[in-house]
Design a protein around this nucleic acid. Sequence first.
RNA 1: GCUCCUGUAGUUCAAUGGAUAGAAUAGAGGUUUCCUAAACCUUUGAUCCGGGUUCGAUUCCCGGCGGGAGUACCA
Length: 639
Amino acid sequence: MQIKQRLTEAVVAAIEQLYGQAIPASMVQLDTTRKEFEGHLTLVVFPFLKMSRQRPEATAEQIGTYLVENLPEVVARYNVIKGFLNIVIADTCWAALLDEIRSDEQWGLKPVTDASPLVMIEYSSPNTNKPLHLGHVRNNLLGWALARVMEANGNRVVKTNIVNDRGIHICKSMLAWLKWGNGETPESTGKKGDHLIGDYYVAFDRHYRAERQALMDTYIAEGMTEEAAKERAERESPLMQEARQMLVKWEQGDAEVRSLWQTMNSWVYAGFDETYRALGVGFDKIYYESQTYLEGKAKVEEGLEKGLFYRREDGSVWADLTAEGLDEKLLLRSDGTSVYMTQDIGTAKLRYEDYPIDKMIYVVGNEQNYHFQVLSILLDKLGFRWGKDLVHFSYGMVELPNGKMKSREGTVVDADDLIAKMVADARELSRDKVNRLDDITDAEADEIARIVGMGALKYFILKVDARKNMLFNPEESIDFNGNTGPFIQYTYARIRSILRKSEQGCTADASPSLATDPSPKEKGVDTFVDAASQSTGAQSDGAASQSVGMLSAVEIALIQQLAAFGASVRKAGTDYNVSVIANYCYDLAKAFNGFYHDFPILREEDGRKRALRLSLCAAVAQVIRTGMGLLGIEVPERM
RNA sequence: GCUCCUGUAGUUCAAUGGAUAGAAUAGAGGUUUCCUAAACCUUUGAUCCGGGUUCGAUUCCCGGCGGGAGUACCA
């Protein structure tokens, strides 16, 4: 924000001049003034007391006087309360800022160039044996939003997905399909492929449990302890043995197994694509574990030769991380097959070859914090430039009222079901309100319901700090009122409605509406600055709604909030916290609604005030659209 | 046991070490001949406990207590 920056510089100069001390800009703390005091920005003077060697009030007075004298075009006046210097910014500054916002569609975002750092973000990363559930939804929405936020902070972003397409889990589904599938396909059943495969995964588990239980009962009857019986049953279960054999065949490249594997995976991918499309997420580059796990093995062998790792007598390969305060970590099993960590190393190798990565971000649940701590150290040892500083964007679990979601126990909230329900609810809700949109077509109503339903779902998830576990109660549907996505979308739709009306009105009576001004560049500045400067004689007594010339306190507060957008984007980027943007958008919409309720816009008779308010409306709509866009949330023209 | 994360109104969430801890929802009450009432206004209600650091602590440090996760030749 320009105003804040100029003030900061002036304060640094003031300290230099008054107390002869050079201070870093970071010492200048300027907060938004609390609404019970007069002022826009408040300087906290406590940090300067040691230099001034005076009481807080006296210090604040001195700095305030300096600012009024040396920066009169910005600082209109000030007041002091204890150690807080409340600064009133000149109207002209706010008016100019409004024009600045309107002149740049991308306002608040940093541009990306070829020289920008390259950030790779891995997210989604599904297993191919079951459909996506609410936990994946959180991952996908966070990953997408984080990518947008990193872009908005001036980074080139590559979005990537590592698909876990091989392993025992997919063999279980394959086996179950062979045994009980009767040749079913997505076409023959009309089921999405990922759901069909998921059903077989569950079927396998059901049969396996029954089988295991029967074996256990036999062993216990033979006199084994329950624990020993369970262990033996798991080892000797014919179903599980078959699944393991299938995995071995897969690794050996058995044509029949590979062919089935490919067919079933293709069903799953078609299903995933549909879900990804509904969520509005996508990827620039997709990796498959079936293509990376061998690379990982090679990389581990390489590390073994360099003496970074060691081999035990049974043939397994380990990394000793006790020097780093961690344990020893398995990298290759005694039979030479790879583990999770091996695959991540292999994936890293391929990515390293494909892109000049400056920073790598993994969007993965917090249950894997330890894994990424280890991965970072291993990649660093293996010579990956970005390994040491890799970011594990660790997010919390989505919990249900009765605990965690468990695929096998069927206590999951299915992504497709949830999406369908949100859109259906939005459609249902809009039925009561369509009377005001009487010319609407069914297709348009469907599209609005999609935007609003998805908006509710996305905002519900993204407004929460990603690190925290969050609760989802399927009994209570996600809200459309209050602090929600639709609230913000509604605010946007209302503004758009006003701007449309003003366009119609403008062509009719040629009133000075900025919303329809064909050349945004020539609008505003003169009009607003003139209007505002004529009013500088007027004094505000701080009463909330009293106008200061053209700009009321409420309008200035709105502009000030708009001005803070860039800072929110930066904070979201440096903290890797997209919820900052969600909360910003809510606060802005909330503030606008108050303004909308109390102030006439189209009905305002003073042409210049009307133009200014329309411009303010347009700026709010613009920032809401940009901010929500960073979250991957669309905004409707009507709703 | 050890490591990490986390404890804020009844509930779901906010608060770069700053002024009287904000919202939403639920509860109570109000607002529509007027630009979209998915809105607006009023009201009830909270920092787990004990120390420490300092002008100032929900925030940082130490110790408890509660919740979650990890500590697999699973991914």
